[in-house]
Design a protein around this nucleic acid. Structure first.
Lengths: 222, 222
DNA sequence: TAGATTGTTAATCGATTAACAATC
DNA sequence: TAGATTGTTAATCGATTAACAATC
């Protein structure tokens, strides 16, 4: 009996991706409201209230019938669940448009990630300091990794260079790769790979525009 | 009989998001190979070959047994299916880190999107020209929309301003909103909304790092 | 012809939602 | 107590994959 209760329900991948959304909303109302119900959140965020309740149960947050969920503990629980309280060091390869934007992204520190070094092939960029992060020659990445190791490597290079960048990071001993290129990468199974491909989003928009009819599914546009 | 054959199979949303990935790969090999099999692509892209075959059938591309698919027609078919051949005008709200990166994104034109005007609240930015795009006062957006209408509006403002930016675009008569903020927006059902939330990707990475065990599902890390 | 690959149908798998019991 | 909300279980829904027939 007790054992069965201890079995943790497996959280779904889409649920994990929804947590930052909840977090952003909860932080925006934190000063005003001590409790929030799943239904209230559902109306604001345009998702089903059952889904919110279920997502919260995955991270072991319990609400009170009639009252809802306490906002502050909920915020803490999500941040802890996602590991925002554990700071991870990060290397950035490719200091172009996207790379620079990421270097200036101030939210990362609150989310437990810090870009400590940038790398590029363009020797005009060496020595530049962007938001306190220095840019180095890509050829020196192994040296720098030994000096100051990192868990996460961000790839923001042209698609023709994506795999090369990934190979370098893997050789260094990186644990996770965050790939902003459209081109997918090959990596050993034990390396975490996350692709953030903005072309996928644009493709969706352009396809829907041409269909010219919104895809409505259960009252939501998909 | 004939009628049944004409019924188009409904493409899945994840399949649409995979198409740009195929496109990127196909373009990279276009000069070298006239034909490519689903199995070859599957190995390179680390997805199932059945999935590729199925995705291509959604866009009515037929391959030849033993030979595979012809690359050039495949590229054309994907581009046409996604509407890359139809140029859409776009407004950008928020010329900060992300906004500037998007303005400098050269791929958009090949994908049928052109940012024609930028808008910001910061009066130091008015009149600036980034990659041939001028930045205007956000208060003048309705005037500019009447002058040069747009189909797509990109939102790259802080999360506290996201809904305001969305409301402005909706008031102008925008058809699609591409939201780069973590905060979701409210919009009428007939408006296409696409959220590109990089926090969702980071959340995934950080969660997996802390679990410290890769989630392997059918030979793929999820 | 034999073998390899496409392409479709059926089975599986995962995620969401509906229904309802538990609880404050 | 009555009513509202949580939280869980079962049903539904959608997407992927396996199996296999068709085809070059």
């Amino acid at each position: 009996m007790k054992i069965e209760k201890d079995i943790k329900k497996k959280i779904s991948v889409p649920a994990i991706r929804r947590l930052p959304l909840y977090l952003c909303f909860l932080k925006s109302i934190n000063d005003k409201t001590k409790y929030i119900t799943a239904r209230e959140m559902a109306q604001e965020l345009h998702v089903g209230s059952t889904q919110i309740t279920k997502d919260f149960s995955y991270i072991n947050m319990e609400g009170t019938p009639k009252l809802g969920y306490e906002t502050k503990p909920l915020i803490n629980a999500i941040e802890r669940f996602l590991g925002y309280d554990i700071q991870r060091m990060c290397f950035l390869i490719g200091v172009g448009n996207i790379g620079k934007a990421l270097l200036n992204f101030s939210d990362f520190k609150n989310e437990g990630m810090e870009i400590i070094k940038g790398f590029d092939v363009d020797d005009n960029k060496y020595g530049h300091i962007i938001n306190n992060v220095e840019v180095f020659n890509i050829n020196s990445i192994e040296f720098h990794f030994k000096q100051t190791p990192a868990d996460i490597g961000i790839i923001a290079v042209p698609s023709s260079e994506t795999q090369n960048a990934a190979d370098l990071l893997i050789k260094c001993g990186i644990k996770a790769i965050w790939n902003f290129s459209t081109m997918p990468i090959s990596a050993p199974k034990d390396i975490i790979v996350e692709n953030t491909c903005i072309d996928s989003s644009l493709a969706m928009i352009k396809w829907k525009l041409n269909k010219n009819v919104p895809l409505i599914y259960k009252n939501r546009i998909i």
